[in-house]
Design a protein around this nucleic acid. Structure first.
Length: 319
DNA sequence: GGCTGTTTAGCTCATG
DNA sequence: CATGAGCTAAACAGCC
């Protein structure tokens, strides 16, 4: 097992799962979504380990993208020719990791679906992805509008993670793997540059981005200052290949914590949700659908997509 | 043809 | 020990 923070990963496998790596790449992008090829590029640029055996890990990565509901596929716009779709993070996926371990998630992120979802039943035997697809839409077979909405929500839905760190949280021990922590500097840059992921995504998809959307988004971006406190940490060559100090990945700088990702464990009995009200905010409360302005956007998007099978709620299901 | 996306399967390992 | 997460391999289909 490589020891994060101890040395460079130039020749060692980084201690991140493919899910983590993919999430990093996506979050690092200005629009919070990337085509597969760019995800490859991002990983290879930052982790020399992945410049070899590309076939192996890229296959695994593709598997993760498809298999894990925390990644959502966003179709390219007609005027953006190219191979493959864009990939974004699901709004609710910020809660997957626990206690600074990005080696292993606390639980698999699974999109809940209101209607009966058949657990892995579907196909049979080999080549199940073929022509004989079952009529029931899978989580991946959602309408373009729903996908767009999910993507847009993905851009803002994770924001509640921001608030606790470095401020209200006594130990600052939760959600250290929050992508924003890992790539905090870039994220901050986006924020400070006035980049609005939601608007960006919507715009990318060709949907109108009304000015109200800025208000919608800014209303849920109140924690930029907090991010500053979290991410303004010294950088040295000894830090992770991602360019972010390992300490910053896991803990607020002021705290005396190990410089390595804390193996999943301790976490006081208090659950994240119970400890931090802000974290209990579900995607429904902050995703575009929660805003009248954004809701109309979604309707508009839906109307642009007559075939739209599945509703937004099939994508964004909140408990 | 190569890339992308989906699915299945088997394995290892950590956790409860 | 059972379960779930993660990794790897492989087969297959669709698209550019």
């Amino acid at each position: 097992m490589p020891r994060p923070g101890k040395s460079s990963y130039s020749d060692q496998k980084p201690p991140y799962s493919y899910i983590s790596l993919t999430a990093m790449a996506i979050q690092h992008s200005a629009e919070k979504m990337l085509p597969l090829s760019d995800i490859y590029k991002f990983i290879m640029e930052r982790f020399p380990y992945y410049r070899e055996h590309t076939q192996r890990w890229q296959n695994s990565l593709r598997h993760n993208l498809s298999f894990n509901d925390c990644f959502i596929k966003i179709p390219r716009r007609p005027d953006q020719p190219g191979k493959g779709s864009f990939w974004a993070l699901h709004p609710d996926c910020g809660d997957m990791f626990e206690n600074g371990s990005f080696l292993r998630r606390r639980k698999r992120f699974k999109v809940l679906r209101p209607e009966h979802h058949l657990p892995g039943g579907g196909g049979s035997g080999t080549g199940s992805g073929g022509p004989g697809k079952p009529p029931a839409p899978t989580p991946h077979m959602v309408s373009e509008a729903a996908v767009a909405a999910a993507a847009a929500a993905a851009a803002v839905g994770r924001l509640p993670q921001f608030s606790p760190y470095g401020s209200s949280q006594p130990s600052g021990f939760k959600h250290p793997f929050a992508i924003e922590n890992i790539i905090g500097r870039d994220y901050k840059g986006v924020l400070q540059a006035g980049g609005l992921p939601l608007a960006s995504v919507m715009h990318h998809l060709g949907y109108p981005v009304p000015s109200q959307l800025s208000g919608v988004v800014s209303s849920v971006w109140p924690h930029v200052g907090v991010m500053d406190s979290v991410t303004s940490v010294p950088v040295s060559p000894d830090y992770g290949p991602f360019g972010v100090p390992m300490k910053a990945l896991c803990h607020p700088p002021a705290q005396t914590m190990p410089a390595v990702p804390v193996p999943i464990k301790p976490a006081p009995a208090m659950s994240t949700a119970s400890a931090i009200p802000a974290l209990t905010v579900s995607a429904s409360q902050i995703c575009p659908a929660a805003s009248p302005a954004a809701a109309s956007l979604l309707e508009q998007a839906a109307s642009n997509n007559p075939e739209g099978k599945g509703s937004l709620h099939s994508v964004l299901v909140h408990s």
